[in-house]
Design a protein around this nucleic acid. Structure first.
Lengths: 230, 230
DNA sequence: CAGCGACGTCAACAGTGTTGACATCGCTGT
DNA sequence: ACAGCGATGTCAACACTGTTGACGTCGCTG
């Protein structure tokens, strides 16, 4: 929930006055910082400066930086779930929307996305995202182990790949829709690496976003086939 | 501790004297350090201590730490490729072997695996791995864009997922064959999250290694179907 | 109004990667 | 063989990082 930081008295920036913090204002300012800098990491000191307080004040509200990053990541999860608008019956489109929204969030907030390699945020946003995916595969006609496996495959791919894309793009402007999968054209000696020599040009044309969605489609199709085979 | 002034140029084995470094000895000691500590990061100072030299001596052989980690990661790639023994015609088994070897390397050297989110090491090991995968999908009957897409999907999944698994397991002993996908049993209110409440137990049974290989099989099957559809 | 807990502030610690000055080693050309 | 010179190890230092403990102040509660 991004309830605009309304709980701070002393709205006018009148010199080094003490500012009252709470978890929500730290989270929203943290998101802001991650989006503006576009860097792959944010520091506690940077965040403190932007909050207008001593950096260590953050430790009154979060046990350590890891807990803070988990809260930020969970907020991103919650927003991605909220961006899913398709009818619950259209399970394919719901999964696509969730994936797209996650990738969009992650590329907008690279410093938070890189934390996603640790899967569990133990927050409500993650819980909602899991529920959405489980429900989608259940409506696809799966259940039991097959259902859980497909969910895990989808979650793993979306989080890990989106995090990788976000990190790779950390430097560039975020308005780009997609980026090349390889940062540089790849070329090799045709003698030792004939396939690369032949296909290197095509590989340079690959766009990370297309590849990401291709993986999503692969899991969806796998679910369709598993459901049909019963 | 070597004293500042000279006279300690003992050539005897490994004693605390000036040691002559080269890229290969740094790499092999770096691998050793990453495997022994089992931590998610290794520091330049730690590596220097284990080499018996001043930590900054490493910078005479690598531009910065990123270049060093790239070299270490490329060595892991090379070893994974070397572990593939199946007949070139059996493209499915070759891909499985490469995936298994990569996961094994990554879990043995967590500190190096976490660097794999940046795909390109620009080294010979990576080149060999790419060539192997391209060749496998070509033998599956694919070519052109379809071939490149399947290669990219496989590479993306193997690297990103294996890196995630390695990070998640960083603390525990490395002799375990597999670990649970979730670090803690997941439970939720059946009112708001009925699917999770129903399937949470099954999710706890998921093993990361099985999930990893499941993704590999999904890409293989996708390639089979694409090849058959022509 | 007293008390007491929550909270912001400050200084400090133990780390990290990296750089520049310095000295020494070992190979080169003459 | 010797002067030279580049490659390389050493050391001190810088700019960062996350985190902790002591201190004082604010604001709510009894």
């Amino acid at each position: 929930m991004t309830t605009a930081t309304g709980s701070n008295r002393l709205a006018s920036h009148g010199g080094p006055g003490k500012v009252r913090l709470d978890r929500d204002s730290i989270i929203s300012t943290g998101l802001e910082l991650a989006a503006d800098t576009g860097a792959t990491t944010i520091s506690v000191r940077e965040l403190g400066a932007r909050l207008g307080t001593d950096p260590t004040a953050i430790y009154r509200h979060f046990r350590n930086k890891e807990a803070l990053m988990q809260a930020l990541l969970d907020e991103l999860n919650a927003r991605a779930v909220a961006a899913v608008t398709a009818d619950p019956g259209d399970w394919r489109e719901r999964l696509r929307q969730l994936a797209r929204a996650t990738l969009s969030s992650f590329t907008s907030y690279p410093a938070i996305a890189v934390e996603a390699t640790v899967l569990t945020t133990h927050g409500p946003g993650e819980l909602d995202a899991i529920e959405l995916m489980l429900d989608a595969f259940a409506r696809a006609g799966l259940d039991g182990d097959e259902l859980v496996r497909h969910y895990a495959l989808m979650a793993s791919h979306v989080l890990a790949t989106a995090a990788g894309i976000a990190r790779g793009r950390s430097g560039r402007p975020s308005d780009e829709e997609s980026s090349p999968w390889f940062d540089a054209p790849i070329l090799a000696d045709p003698r030792t690496h004939p396939r690369i020599a032949e296909l290197g040009a095509k590989m340079a044309d690959l766009e990370d976003r297309d590849l990401f969605m291709l993986g999503v489609e692969a899991v969806i199709q796998s679910a369709e086939r598993a459901a049909a085979a019963r």
